[in-house]
Design a protein around this nucleic acid. Sequence first.
DNA 1: ACCGCACCCTGAGCGC
DNA 2: TGCGCTCAGGGTGCGG
Length: 291
Amino acid sequence: MPELPEVEVTRRSIEPKLVGRVIAAVHTGKPSYFFLTPPRELQKRLTGRKVTGLNRHGKYLLAKLDDGSRLLLHLGMTGQLFTQGASSVRLLSATARASLKPQEQPQFTPDKHTHLRLTFADGPPDVIFRDVRKFGKVKLLDKNESDARLDKLGPDALEATADQLFRAITGREIAIKSALMDQGVLAGAGNIYADEALFLAGIQPKKPAGRLKKAQCEALLKALQGVLRRSIETGGSSISDYVTPDGSDGGYQDERRVYARTGAPCYACGTAIKRVVIGQRSAHYCPQCQK
DNA sequence: ACCGCACCCTGAGCGC
DNA sequence: TGCGCTCAGGGTGCGG
């Protein structure tokens, strides 16, 4: 599932395929929950625009256009943003995977989950946004138009300071795990990296956020930024649908210490990793190492 | 103000 | 073989 590292890896690889190019055509799927700006309107307003930048805040991508408007992209749970020619079985449906011959290179062709495809004046490659569960979002913001989603975001998790974290959670009774996943506290952490950071900082995920000492906030933020940076280096975590924009898998899933390791021995002490539900989400931790 | 929870969506995995 | 059920999860919005 795309969290900050996956979105940043995507940003870095898509940026050179997007910035400086002029959009020639916009192909979309049907109107849905996915399109905060209706497909017709996207087609009308994006065609002919030149992309001038691609920024990230938390898990959001913002493509800047030459008329001052901005295209907001969110990958949701299963969003895949990639370039034409990407090759990965993760881009195929289960039935398409099953009918692949053993040595055959899986080649992506637009399917019913392909909601947005941009073609460019200078030819291929196209930029494609595919999302099976449609939890992703596309919205075109006018010049100077603000967006409530963006306004609510806290500081980007990679740039935040321990002091900002400490101030955002003082007095709050919610579990520290929930606080870390609250995008208004820090923008960018999701389930995987919140679990991993709490393990590295030795903090129990259910601990009330407001009871963390300043030093614990420092340790936690340092751990979080460490795992985020390391994950970016390895190409992100390919746990379910995530692929890097050239179609390759990330590598961070192999470095997980607790996430989705329920029952497996803790690498530090051998105790079985536990799974509990916190705020409707699964949390994984070592009952021995995290107090 | 704060928090828990239902909901959006679809495919995988499982029991029968 | 295939049906029906449950689960996963980011973010939003509502109700307590």
